[in-house]
């Protein structure tokens, strides 16, 4: 589904602050893969997502999504096929627009004629049904401004927005990190449901190692812009936390440190 080949990105090239964030990185995802991504601060996790989503162009390498070369496509063109959620709940929605209007905006990806009404009856019913699944009572608050919802509610709506037209690839960048533990768990459960139901190929950055190992079917670890660890199958199932940390130390040549990393085995 996704084929990233020899991707390299250097920020501030030619200045004293030059920094290579992605080094010749290659990655292949099968359709339906749910990959969790871990790594220390500055490892290049977000940069990898930005590169795939097209926030900037990379100086080397190629990105192929479902057979189509998107290496040089514009960000908004890629967005038709790539759903994306950020850590900051403020980033994913328009605060002065209503819940309904935000969903309509996301649903617009599927519409060919931009001059159709944004509030068609059947669409509104569809949004209501979708919101009801979140079990947050939001289906009764469709006319509420997005800015008046809590962070967790907003992140849940953002999740709906990025999957309302099923994307070929879903990129989740610590999308539960800003939420309290209970809400975070809830949003994660909703994420798993939506992803498995629609068989969406997904990548999720998390700083919770337990969560990383217990969610999805594959875990990759980044260090210095490279993939240093790629776990799947029984190897992934049986690995323990100390083993993982030891492997990281071996491959990356340093201790795994992430000030937001939860080094617990529990989910």
């Amino acid at each position: 589904m996704l084929n990233v080949k020899n991707l390299s990105k250097t920020f501030l090239k030619g200045t004293p602050n030059e920094h290579t964030a992605l080094q010749n990185l290659s990655l292949h995802l099968e359709k339906g893969d749910f990959v969790t991504v871990i790594g220390s601060n500055g490892a290049g996790k977000s940069t990898l997502f930005n590169a795939i989503a097209g926030s900037f162009l990379c100086e080397a390498g190629s990105i192929v999504l479902d057979g189509a070369d998107i290496t040089y496509k514009k960000e908004h063109q890629r967005a038709k096929q790539i759903g994306r959620i950020f850590q900051d709940p403020m980033k994913g929605t328009a605060p002065d627009l209503t819940v309904e209007e935000n969903l309509a905006l996301a649903y617009a990806k599927s519409m060919r004629n931009p001059f159709t009404s944004a509030r068609r009856r059947k669409d509104v019913d569809f949004y209501r049904a979708q919101l009801a699944r979140l079990d947050m009572g939001l289906e009764e608050r469709m006319r509420t401004k997005m800015g008046q919802l809590s962070g967790g509610q907003r992140q849940a709506v953002t999740l709906l927005m990025s999957t309302i037209v099923t994307p070929k690839l879903l990129l989740l960048d610590e999308h539960t990190a800003a939420l309290d533990p209970v809400t975070a768990q809830k949003v994660l459960e909703i994420t798993k449901d939506i992803v498995s139901e629609n068989q969406i190929t997904t990548m999720m950055i998390t700083h919770n190692i337990g969560q990383a190992l217990h969610t999805g079917n594959r875990t990759i670890m980044l260090a210095n812009g490279r993939i240093v660890l790629d776990l799947q199958g029984t190897e992934r199932e049986n690995i323990t936390l100390p083993e993982l940390l030891e492997m990281y130390k071996e491959k990356a040549g340093k201790v795994l440190d992430n000030d937001r990393m939860l080094l617990s085995d529990a989910e």
Partner: peptide, 10 residues
């Protein structure tokens, strides 16, 4: 209202 979001949404 939120240009960042719009850019990420096609």
């Amino acid at each position: 209202n939120n240009e960042d979001m719009v850019r990420a949404s096609s």
